[in-house]
């Protein structure tokens, strides 16, 4: 009995904030202070959602965005992890690349967007390259830090037990650096996600959530824009909570390197 009550209390607390916001929104929308075209009621937004789902437009756009995200992030992951490992392992590579990476890191990837459009034209290619470039820096830096931060005592223990360089690297340094690498990938993915939407607006891709929002602006379709924003938020939440939390639970948490 108590458990059932508990569940309802918790569910109530979960719903309450959204209910309050929805009521405020609806009151504002219906009060007529703002034109309904600019500040649509939630019913209109919901209708737009149904319309977009039924016509398949929402799915096509989401698909386009996700494919771009995966490609760009894969690019950043491969380049960033490899470069980061090389920087952590070889002093020469570190000395040569660290200044370049440190200079490039604070430039928002988005600032390159118009330049990339000039270089690679409109469409998917510049979008994927930009997302890859923007998210590769945090992957590189975190991987490098991770390889550097592997505990001295683990290395010495492996050495004392007669491991050769290769074994130490593959079986001690790499797994030891994994928490940092994951942090880097996680940060990189979040960054990629944050700029991808804006990149789509600038590079005018064929299908994409960012482009959907941008296109809807031309026709004052605020309901479509809000559906797009909500979809973007839902995917962001899912990426953060599901994908990475799972990945971590299966590796570094299980190995006892980090608490869940």
């Amino acid at each position: 009995m108590n458990r059932v009550k508990d569940f309802f209390v918790r569910a109530g607390w979960m719903v309450l904030p959204f209910l309050v916001v929805a009521i405020i929104w609806e009151t504002l929308a219906r009060s007529g202070i703002y034109p309904p075209k600019l500040f649509p009621s939630l019913v209109t937004v919901f209708e737009a959602l149904v319309r977009l789902v039924v016509s398949g437009a929402l799915w096509t756009n989401t698909q386009g965005t996700l494919v771009r995200l995966v490609l760009g992030f894969a690019l950043a992951g491969v380049v960033g992890v490899l470069l980061g490992i090389a920087m952590g392992r070889y002093r020469v590579v570190e000395d040569v690349f660290l200044p370049i990476v440190s200079i490039g890191y604070p430039i928002p990837g988005l600032a390159y967007a118009p330049l990339f459009v000039l270089w690679f034209g409109l469409g998917d290619l510049p979008a994927v390259l930009l997302v890859g470039l923007a998210s590769s820096f945090s992957v590189t830096i975190n991987t490098w830090k991770g390889v550097k931060a592997v505990r001295e005592i683990w290395l010495r223990a492996a050495q004392a037990m007669g491991a050769n360089d290769r074994q130490i690297f593959l079986q001690v340094s790499l797994p030891g650096a994994l928490p940092y690498i994951f942090t880097g990938l996680r940060l990189g993915l979040a960054q990629a996600w944050r700029i991808l939407v804006a990149v789509e607006m600038i590079t005018a891709v064929l299908h994409g959530l960012g482009w959907m929002i941008f296109g809807a602006q031309e026709f004052l379709n605020t309901d479509v824009m809000l559906v797009g924003i909500a979809t973007i938020g839902a995917i962001g939440l899912l990426l953060e909570k599901q994908v990475f939390a799972r990945l971590e639970a299966h590796t570094i948490v299980r190995w006892g390197m980090m608490s869940a």
Binding site: W193, I195, V197, A198, A216, Q217, I229, G236, L239, E240
Partner: peptide, 15 residues
């Protein structure tokens, strides 16, 4: 939090 601020830009421009 996970909604990129830039996704709001077109809407904010209208507002």
């Amino acid at each position: 939090m996970p909604i990129p601020s830039l996704a709001w830009v077109p809407l904010f421009i209208l507002w």
